[in-house]
Design a protein around this nucleic acid. Structure first.
Lengths: 200, 200
DNA sequence: CATTATAAGTTTACGTCGTAAATTAAAGGT
DNA sequence: ACCTTTAATTTACGACGTAAACTTATAATG
């Protein structure tokens, strides 16, 4: 069916391929998934995906960008669901954790995997920045609300790094079996916030 | 020169190959390094490494194990260099950070990369456990010294996760440019320790 | 010593990968 | 009706990991 292919059709094919890719990447890791498999999955010949994506790396970037978008969306929803800075922070943190644990393969693809030429994929960069902005904004609320002391961006990164570190260690199975991951997160947040609390 | 090959010779070849592999893995990532390159690097034919390693994954595991061993050694030295629990903790933390930043490729290979059948490589498991034990021991000192409150293993994991999280985000270039990584580490440790401090 | 069994190392070969290039075929525009 | 354009397929290539066959040099045996 040559001649044509509206932008909508292009988008539809890209979406379908991304969905298949995300599932297969999650199951077997991106390296283990072949272009031929992806093509078979969509019922097309091995070279067809190359009309819609530059190469395999481009597909990976698209999958990661879509992950960041859903991630950002989940956090934005949590952000808007509360107005009190503390509750808002807790809601965003819960959304973050829920996403990381519920879509752990996507999360690993997004954060663990360091694509060398990440900057070449503007969609990826934009989606990733969008997610980070919410986290910073959430911490800003707590500082402005007078609950804690410090530069909001620094505080946001403290909480983010601590949460991310625990999550990747948990997902990699590197935590000691004696440590309950959710208790680890709770205790870490509590300690950091207590440590940053404004002196009464 | 067939017949013979003492254990020492085997070990020597394995070491040479591991060193070449670590350098090349660091430069280009493990996936981009081929068995043929490694063989050429050692001046042998492409199949020779297969006498000393089961396959490419086995080489990667050996490289990671050797990384964990050097990492553990560095932390053990720091641990022994101080007797006061707080100074000891700081020394171990510094050793950890210095290793992660100074051998960032090895660190990423060790922690970022999740080899699926990690348990199949006992050397790797042992070296990895050795490193973790020091971190837990270091936190135990602070708790026993009465400086902070809590389960030593949990406290160790809190500090570990926070440090590791900041480091991997830094190494992946995901920290905001406005945030100074070393200040981030300092502030996080200070906040956690303040938050865990025993009430006077 | 000459012979032979064995093990180190190389060569060859296979199936699979990502993808470039050539080819085919279907839909407008004229 | 014909030509141009382009989606899609087919074919083809070089490189990969590694199995299997082969070569070669020694150490043990008679």
């Amino acid at each position: 069916m040559p001649r044509a292919l509206s932008p909508a059709q292009v988008e539809e094919f890209r979406d379908r391929l991304c969905q298949a890719a995300e599932r297969l990447f999650a199951e077997h890791g991106p390296e283990a998934v072949t272009m031929r498999q992806l093509a078979t999955e969509l019922g097309v010949s091995p070279m067809t995906p190359y009309r819609y994506f530059k190469d395999k790396d481009d597909i990976l970037a698209a999958v990661r960008a879509s992950g960041f978008e859903r991630f950002a969306k989940a956090m934005e929803a949590a952000f808007k669901s509360e107005s009190d800075p503390v509750k808002r922070s807790e809601a965003v943190g819960r959304a973050y954790t829920r996403f990381a644990l519920g879509h752990s393969d996507a999360y690993r693809l997004m954060f663990d995997l360091s694509q060398p030429n990440e900057a070449d994929y503007p969609d990826l960069v934009a989606a990733s920045r969008r997610a980070r902005d919410i986290m910073v904004g959430q911490a800003g609320g707590m500082v402005e609300g007078g609950l804690i002391d410090g530069d909001p961006e620094l505080v946001a990164h403290m909480l983010w790094a601590a949460l991310h570190g625990g999550l990747v260690l948990q997902l990699a199975g590197k935590l000691s079996p004696a440590v309950n991951p959710s208790e680890l997160r709770r205790a870490t947040f509590e300690a950091i916030l207590r440590g940053l609390a404004k002196p009464a």
